[in-house]
Design a protein around this nucleic acid. Structure first.
Lengths: 155, 155
DNA sequence: CTAGATGCAAAGGTTTTGCAGATTT
DNA sequence: AAATCTGCAAAACCTTTGCATCTAG
């Protein structure tokens, strides 16, 4: 279980397991493929009538990211979101709708050979990479189409 | 010249060429491969003792991005930065140092075939993509090494 | 002349911080 | 008991907005 992993990682650093940390972590487990910002995580926690302060949630998500339990994901809107790091998960990338902001994951082999090429060419040692695709989701494609039709009728 | 392009794009939309817009655009031309946030652009402008209000700079960078003269770039820190769009430029990606935040560009063929694959699998029509590599720049690699050595001597 | 742009200051929204009191180990 | 964590409220940030004034076309 994730909570055990959290407990272990905390112990390594002489940090403590608390009810709040457990609750925040669980909110990401429940969010599944949703990518929550610190603020969204806070709201989710509040909905379950768990009273945690906003400051604690903000502190906790960064803690969890530092421990390797969450991964920071940032799209073009600049909002810092987090997703659960799953052990043994396939590498995946993100496809984002420019209109409604919906996100789907896209599994793809690691671009390891590319990382090696980048290291050779730039001298940077590469720890990881993120690939994002931006476009229109199926729903927004059809909505846009009907809207365009309306527009041309009006003219 | 870029300013002509700006003038043309503005005219198309019945918008006006102003001294402020010229100055902001120039600050990105001078920044070269630096990626400036709106706030950094504002400071750069101030240094040249051009008095433009912050609000105007913020409005202008978004305007320029909308006109296709700047491109939004967002790294993991969530800060929205902008880079100049160069005509006929090779597609490039970004390599970011996790320690000092330095950024270098990495030319690479477009991943167009990948975009097509993503469209087939997800149903999203893809407009563009961004690939970022995160790691350590050469300078930080050596600094980290000497720091580690110091640490082990202390023990 | 007049639609559009700017500057200012105020408002809005998000994230961080200091510190007293509560909790974990 | 001691070190760590939490909650609260204030502070710090960053960005946007409303509106009077100015200006490009």
């Amino acid at each position: 279980m994730k909570c055990d992993q959290l407990r272990t990682e905390l112990k390594k650093r002489n940090q403590r397991m608390t009810a709040q940390r457990d609750i925040v972590l669980k909110s990401f487990i429940e969010a599944e493929t949703d990518h929550l910002s610190a603020d969204e995580a806070y709201r989710k926690v509040m909905e379950k009538n768990c009273r945690i302060s906003k400051a604690t949630v903000y502190r906790t998500v960064e803690l969890l990211a530092g421990l390797g339990l969450l991964r920071r994901i940032v799209f073009r809107d600049g909002i810092i979101r987090y997703e659960l790091v799953k052990k043994g998960e396939h590498h995946h990338h993100h496809v984002v709708c420019n209109r409604c902001g919906s996100v789907v994951e896209f599994p793809l082999d690691n671009l390891d050979d590319l990382e090696e090429l980048v290291r050779e060419k730039t001298g940077y040692t590469i720890e990881d990479h993120q690939l994002k695709f931006y476009g229109l989701c199926p729903k927004c494609q059809s909505e846009k189409k009907t809207q365009n039709n309306r527009d041309s009728e009006t003219k």
